[in-house]
Amino acid sequence: MTTLAATETHTVRVRLNGRAVEGRATPRMLLTDFLRHELHATGTHVGCEHGVCGACTIRIDGALARSCLAYAVQVDGATIETVESLAPERGRLSVLQTAFQRHHALQCGFCTAGILMSLDTLLGAEPDAGEDRIREVLAGHLCRCTGYQPIIRAALDAAARLREGDADA
């Protein structure tokens, strides 16, 4: 157990969306910057950098997290999932992503990466989640242009299709 010096860069190894990857970070490097600038995974967006907007939401070891409130060195050895993990393969979107498209649940898309991660986590853990739960989870996100109604419609639609086992929506 050693102290990582502020002025030096340190190797950080993570499993990012199923792949073992590594990068270098000083202790103060935000996980958002590590993902985007070191690992070049730019799907995760950065809005406020103090935990309020939700744009940077990802999963660390299976649990939701604001990546702007974590430092890269904290996640050394962890499993990270970002919005890039959602599509089952190149050129195909997940059921939830397709529902977003169908219901026009995004305009500029700035907030979308984080919202998708939160809703994907919710529907994975609680397939029967209804509108109340969806609203509760959405409260952790700010969307400044789409408005929340289409997002809620998309989430409810995705939930229904996932329950019917419609993997290819």
Binding site: T3, A6, P27, R28
Partner: peptide
Amino acid sequence: MKPAPFDYLRADDISAALSAL
């Protein structure tokens, strides 16, 4: 919106955390 530099210690047990503190 980036923090000032700091050293980082991941404590494995409570006595290590308390010594460092």
